[in-house]
Nucleic acid binder design. Sequence first.
DNA 1: TAGACTGTTCAATCAATAGCGAACAGCCAG
DNA 2: CTGGCTGTTCGCTATTGATTGAACAGTCTA
Lengths: 127, 127
Amino acid sequence: MSQRSHRAAPEHTHPDDVPVQTALAALADPVRIQLVRELAGAADWERTCGTFDVPVGKAALSHHFSVLRAAGLIEQRDAGPKRVNRLRRPEFDERFPGLLDLVLRDAGDAGDAEDAGDSGDDRRPGA
Amino acid sequence: MSQRSHRAAPEHTHPDDVPVQTALAALADPVRIQLVRELAGAADWERTCGTFDVPVGKAALSHHFSVLRAAGLIEQRDAGPKRVNRLRRPEFDERFPGLLDLVLRDAGDAGDAEDAGDSGDDRRPGA
DNA sequence: TAGACTGTTCAATCAATAGCGAACAGCCAG
DNA sequence: CTGGCTGTTCGCTATTGATTGAACAGTCTA
């Protein structure tokens, strides 16, 4: 018998079973983007749910984690009273190549501080 | 003289000025995904707004095009009474590498399994 | 066993957005 | 000039999703 925990394990969805639209919707939220970024900067199973620096209550936080799970972005495991998280980077990367990199690289700016190596596609309509 | 049109040109946003979140949100919609896909399968300036096979009225359609413009995904130009569209593939690709490919490749299915109910696919990490 | 701590669930609220119908504005053909 | 066509804007409704506070459940420590 499993003496691990009597608590229901969270429902996980594999990235393979996630439609693109769901993945995009999951990442199109500032709070969840922040969660993913902090998670990417930590080791697997290191961060517990309560240790993230996001401006929402724990109820909303729990909801966001649920969305991330359903999108195949994270995996959760119970560790005593806490719940530790892991970013499913390899699996998600295989299903949606480059997507995670985009979110992690673009840390909040809209691209104004890019390099000057502009390929110069500067066409304007109605010229 | 330029007899292009006396109509106000639509406001365009360059992909460089678009935050990731905006790009993701723009693509996280079934109607807009369909628009982008059809646009990708046609030549530049070939499709007019009314020629897309989407299940919405023209008012909603106009709104979706507005969102796509604001996300730097499309460019529009007036051609007589019609308005022709162009997918900003190279510019958008340079700003968000791989993102457009993801949406275009994943043509509506979630890999292999898509069901209408709750997927009892809770597999635990186990070991 | 009691208590503190962590996270989930519930009920309700609020904001954002998608949708439609109708009215409006520019463009071309007659 | 008039009418038909194309697309936008406006007013409105419905739906979705984010958020909170309170209550609940499970786990560890004292």
